[in-house]
Write a protein that binds this DNA or RNA. Structure first.
Lengths: 156, 156
DNA sequence: ACTCTATAGGTCAAAGAAAGTCAGAATTTT
DNA sequence: AAAATTCTGACTTTCTTTGACCTATAGAGT
């Protein structure tokens, strides 16, 4: 297993199901895993970004720390944020996958729905001869369209 | 016997009857067969493509892997028909809507999933400046991709 | 207050690890 | 012999890990 993955799951275990916030010491964690301290930053950047549903803040110097906060938004709030702010004119496949798996983790869509969405924006699906910029625009539009469909649910 | 055939059956043996998913290391497999690593890609492309009923995903870099998922073999008849015969190179929005509502009526997908699929292939989503013929191709690919995702459900 | 210093975290580029691509050579089929 | 298929190798891209250097903060000493 990758070091980054171990660190990721270690942090997620620290967070657990209930607590929404965890504070850690970069150097201690690095020491614990026997790796370079900057490795921790790499993990934060690639697995605890806002797109992944986390915010991080930190402090340097004596008594420094890194705090990781899991974003807890209601489904509708999250959808509005994605529709109005996060999705712009273009999205890469990776961005879509990240956003979709976020929706799944926050139980806004089911696992089946998530993989349906992911397969719609996949390279496989978009494998037609058009410019990459057009594909980016297409993904953004598809995501918006699909999220609107999700948002329109259970309006009785 | 051809090398490609050996590799193919080796992988199929790994998959076995029960498991529908297998993960492997490209370099290790190539080493085992004493061939160039890219040979593995050739086998995947010619024998484990979506048309053959398989999905593959992979990751590069340290700790990289290739995962192969078998999707087809006993899924609902309807799904097989759609994947292999009904969906060609191009679909109109109306055709998509019709197919999707049939899937819903046959309880192959839920109502929520159906509207998700419909919104993905909608005019709203495809409102980018490309030729109509390209949109048709796109819809066909998207439908095929999404149906593969449906077909890949409840395995392992 | 002001400066110094020890303590922590941040950045970035480069090295390492593994998979992807593609043109062309080799082989098999027709 | 021509066409199709299979294989290889050089080059590319992506992801991970490390290390050297940079910056911020708290606290001690003046």
């Amino acid at each position: 297993m990758r070091l980054s993955d171990s660190i990721e799951s270690f942090i997620k275990t620290m967070l657990g199901e209930e607590s929404t916030e965890v504070e850690l010491k970069r150097n201690e964690l690095a020491e614990y895993f026997g790796c370079a301290p900057s490795q921790i930053n790499y993990v934060l950047a690639t697995r605890f970004s806002p797109d992944h549903g986390y915010l991080t803040e930190s402090r340097r110097g004596g008594g420094g720390y890194i705090r990781i906060v899991r974003v807890v938004e209601s489904g509708p709030q999250r959808l509005m944020y994605l529709l109005n702010e996060r999705i712009g004119d273009s999205l890469s496949e990776e961005e879509c996958v990240r956003l979709i798996s976020q929706l799944k983790e926050q139980r806004i869509v089911t696992a089946d729905e998530a993989s349906l969405m992911a397969s719609a924006v996949s390279t496989r699906a978009l494998g037609v001869p058009v410019q990459e910029s057009v594909k980016g625009a297409l993904r953004a539009r598809m995501m918006r369209s699909m999220l609107m469909s999700v948002a329109a649910r259970n309006r009785t």
